[in-house]
């Protein structure tokens, strides 16, 4: 049977992202039915994935404005001709 270590170290993200084969998926599901620690771990890793989905990288607003202004002018310039 799949060990907790193999589940956590190798298969957990693939399980959450639906990247496992049917056989591997079955094996993970069976393990999760029997193991409360791994169920907790998978739930927590899911929270981590969701945090990452909702967390935009920090932006430097000064740079955003400068780059956007440059691009905007270039776009207008280009489409004049």
């Amino acid at each position: 049977m799949l060990s907790c270590e193999a589940l956590a170290q190798q298969h957990a993200s693939d399980y959450l992202d639906h990247q496992l084969t049917n056989r591997q998926r079955f094996s993970v599901r069976l393990h999760l039915m029997l193991c409360g620690n791994c169920r907790r771990f998978i739930t927590q890793l899911k929270v981590v994935r969701e945090v990452l989905r909702r967390n935009p990288p920090p932006t430097d607003e000064t740079q955003v404005q400068a780059t956007a202004t440059k691009l905007h002018s270039a776009y207008h310039e280009q489409n004049k001709s």
């Binding site: 935009p56 990288p57 607003e61 955003v64 956007a68 691009l71």
Partner: peptide, 16 residues
């Protein structure tokens, strides 16, 4: 050519 759209584009995609 909407200026705000350029800002949004850069804000959203520059760092990624």
């Amino acid at each position: 050519g909407e200026k705000k759209a350029f800002e949004q584009l850069v804000r959203h995609y520059h760092q990624p």
